[in-house]
Amino acid sequence: MFGIGFNSDNDIVNEIKRGNEKALVTLYKQNLNAIKKFVLNNSGTIDEAQDVMQETLIAVWQNVAKPEFLLNVKLSTYVFSIAKNQWYKQLKKKTRFKVVDVAMTENIRADEAPMLMYDTKIVSDYVNKLDETCRRLLMYFYFDGLDMNTIAEQMGFANSDTVKSKKYQCFKKLETSIKEHFGKDDFI
């Protein structure tokens, strides 16, 4: 299947569910023109099209990786619909388009985002300093949303319990390094 590329939507979905990042590349190639054209035709720039493309694919990646995800339409249609939503969100953030949709704008509240204890960027730096196994395991679990069995299969662990134990070790290692960095009084 991979030898000749992802030929069908199901192929792509299955590979995303396995955490194969090259499926993301295929998605990029397949949807680049349409999304770029859409953004450029709707007052966007090439840089904004790039941002929309990235955010869209990340969102698709996360959604498709969920075990409950079921593709009911063409994958390109699904991707394009997410891209449109992404672009409309960005349009509303732009000052010159701030009176586009009053109703939706009112729903956006600045205090929706929870205050975090640690600076997310610093945490991400410590994540990247982890060994490869821990880094991948934590990313697969927390971002991709892969279940323990899939992670076990993907990373070559014996079973889901092994993954669970390993994931705990990795998390504690990360937590320890972060707490050493910040100190208890440095919590935001």
Binding site: L116, M117, Y118, T120, V123, S124, D125, N128
Partner: peptide, 12 residues
């Protein structure tokens, strides 16, 4: 929660 957000950011 903060650590998980950092992991997500790194993955993103």
């Amino acid at each position: 929660r903060a650590i998980i957000e950092g992991i997500k950011l790194a993955r993103k």
